[in-house]
């Protein structure tokens, strides 16, 4: 049952996403692109949520990816998305591999807090670099930020009116690859150990696997995901600021993962798209209280449907499926 339904849903979802640029108005297309880009970072955070760990610092790797675009454009004339996405992912992974050496020892709130501290350090550095080297050349643009410019695709610069479509499909492609990769990871022994950690850490070690190793590998993977996410988001938004590394951004990722539901891979995707739309419509209809609107929705999810939007969907699907079966029987 489970095995049968999922591929169908995946195919339908894939088709819907492929059709997005043809159906939706331009501004919604933009929202979905941004949501897909951020989805990668949300997926990274969701990996840890599965393991019962929260991180308030993954904006760090997101910012690494985004500034890869900013620096690449500024100094090396790099603006090819096919080159920058892997580059951002690798840099994210490298930073994660370094920070992860420390981080893999921590759990619970300490893990969350230490991540927060590291990302806030990066935030401070991005803010500062502008000034330390002001006399030479400005580096990060300080809080005013850097401009990303228009990406090229394997050297091809699409005409302006099609640029958004190119960007959308590129983002969709990367998101698809990421989904596949994460599925594979979760289906591997490491993936199962990760999930098991939430229940009992010591038993994993009894079975001969080092929990620290599991978390370290996950951390590096999550750094790569968030790095790629930053690259795509930077191209989509077009402007890069230190806020990419701010803890509120990390908080948003966790928020979105929970909104969509982190127990599954599609959950974060649903969450990311829902979040961008909720945020946009909240500020349309409640320009003064959009924060509160987000807070109330979140509160309702946590208290009534902790599995997130995806759990609600699965519940509905199950109910629908039962009715169908009953109809067949009758």
């Amino acid at each position: 049952m489970e095995r049968k339904r999922l591929p169908v849903a995946a195919v339908v979802a894939g088709l819907v996403l492929l059709a997005v640029p043809l159906v939706l108005p331009e501004w919604m297309k933009f929202i979905v692109t941004l949501a897909l880009a951020k989805f990668l970072a949300v997926l990274a955070v969701a990996l840890f949520l599965r393991a019962g760990m929260v991180t308030f610092g993954h904006a760090m790797f997101y910012a690494v990816g985004a500034y890869t675009v900013g620096f690449g454009a500024k100094w090396f004339g790099l603006r090819d998305i096919v080159l920058l996405v892997p580059l951002g992912a690798v840099l994210g992974a490298v930073v994660a591999a370094l920070v992860g050496l420390v981080m893999a020892r921590y759990r619970e709130v300490f893990f969350a807090m230490l991540n927060l501290a590291f990302s806030m350090m990066l935030y401070g550095v991005l803010l500062k670099l502008y000034w330390l080297l002001l006399k030479l050349y400005w580096l990060t643009g300080g809080t005013d930020g850097l401009s990303a410019g228009a990406p090229t695709f394997l050297g091809y610069a699409p005409p302006r009116e099609y640029l958004r479509d190119f960007l959308y499909y590129a983002t969709l492609l990367v998101a698809g690859l990421a989904i596949y990769g994460v599925y594979r990871f979760l289906a591997s022994p490491l993936g199962y150990y990760l999930k098991a950690r939430a229940d009992n850490e010591i038993r994993i070690e009894y079975s001969g696997e080092s929990v620290r190793h599991v978390i370290y590998v996950t951390y590096v993977l999550s750094g790569a995901l968030a790095g790629a996410s930053g690259v795509l988001a930077a191209f989509t938004v077009g402007h890069i600021v230190p806020e990419y590394a701010f803890w509120i951004q990390s908080g948003d990722f966790v928020f979105v993962a929970l909104l969509g539901g982190f127990e599954s891979v599609p959950g974060p995707l649903v969450g990311a798209i829902a979040f961008e739309f909720i945020r946009t419509y909240a500020s349309k209809y409640f320009p003064n209280e959009w924060q509160m609107t987000l807070g109330i929705i979140m509160l309702a999810i946590i208290l009534f449907r902790p599995g997130g939007l995806w759990a609600i969907y699965e519940e509905l699907a199950a109910r629908f499926g039962r009715r169908e079966r009953e109809a067949e029987r009758a």
Binding site: V237, V241, E243
Partner: peptide, 20 residues
């Protein structure tokens, strides 16, 4: 439109203003 929420929100909002 509220300007708070960071540049990525503002970019989204401007698109919404112009196109929606």
């Amino acid at each position: 439109v509220d300007e708070a929420g960071g540049p990525d929100k503002q970019v989204t909002e401007l698109r919404r203003l112009a196109l929606d």
